[in-house]
Design a protein around this nucleic acid. Structure first.
Length: 202
DNA sequence: CGACCGATCCTC
DNA sequence: AGGATCGGTCGT
């Protein structure tokens, strides 16, 4: 039994929210069916001080605007021209912050995920959603869904039957340019889970 | 306006 | 190890 997370869940310290999103269920409803994945890896980006964040120095642009709005909305952005990343806007009001969903464990709608990924040939299930842009492909998350309310019915996150797990932390992936913020332990993952994107060095 | 580059992934 | 591919960002 899945219960949609209330907005108050997102309106807390970004590091707490990022950690507590582990084990929760990401749900996407499309015309073709419902897709569900268990979140196994997240990262926190906390403007305005975090040099890895798009909202560093409170940079407010067309792209980053949703991070300055109501908590609990989707921040979806394009990366390397061809991929997307999906975050939940989190934190106290007026602090632009987001939790990047880096990996999920497929739970439901697995064939639809495969179709959305447009992969040729057989791909092991562990390769389906073990990275932020793979999650976006599998869950059909594109620019049009940027800013969508995660308290709505198209894309949302639920609590449910939570298996017990240990939380691991590490530095974030792909932000080595961020100077004194490049090594902060703001990546969270379920220890030992097969669907985590990269072998963590804790 | 031009140059540079990225919260990535796939193929060689 | 390198390429895809384009909008954000910043310097001229």
């Amino acid at each position: 039994m899945l219960t949609k997370l209330p907005r108050s869940f997102y309106e807390r310290d970004p590091l707490i929210v990022s950690r507590e999103l582990l084990g929760k269920f990401l749900v996407r409803r499309t015309e073709e069916g419902e897709i569900v994945g268990r979140i196994v890896e997240t990262e926190a980006y906390i403007g305005p001080h975090d040099k890895a964040s798009h909202t560093y120095k409170n940079r407010k642009t067309k792209r980053t605007a949703v991070q300055f709005g109501e908590r609990g909305h989707a921040y979806i952005f394009r990366i390397y021209g061809i991929y997307h990343c999906f975050c939940a806007v989190v934190g106290p009001k007026y602090v632009p912050a987001a939790t990047l969903i880096r990996a999920v464990e497929p739970v439901q709608g697995i064939e639809l995920m495969r179709k959305n990924r447009q992969l040729r040939g057989e791909t092991p299930i562990t390769e389906l959603t073990n990275g932020p842009s793979k999650v976006c492909r599998a869950f059909a998350l594109t620019d049009e869904l940027n800013g969508i309310d995660l308290c709505g019915d198209e894309l949302f996150i639920c609590s449910g039957e939570e298996e017990k797990f240990e939380v691991g932390t590490s530095k974030r992936i792909g932000v080595d340019y961020a100077e004194e913020y490049k090594d902060v332990p703001w990546r969270f993952f379920i220890r030992g889970n097969k669907f985590v994107s990269k072998k963590p060095r804790e």
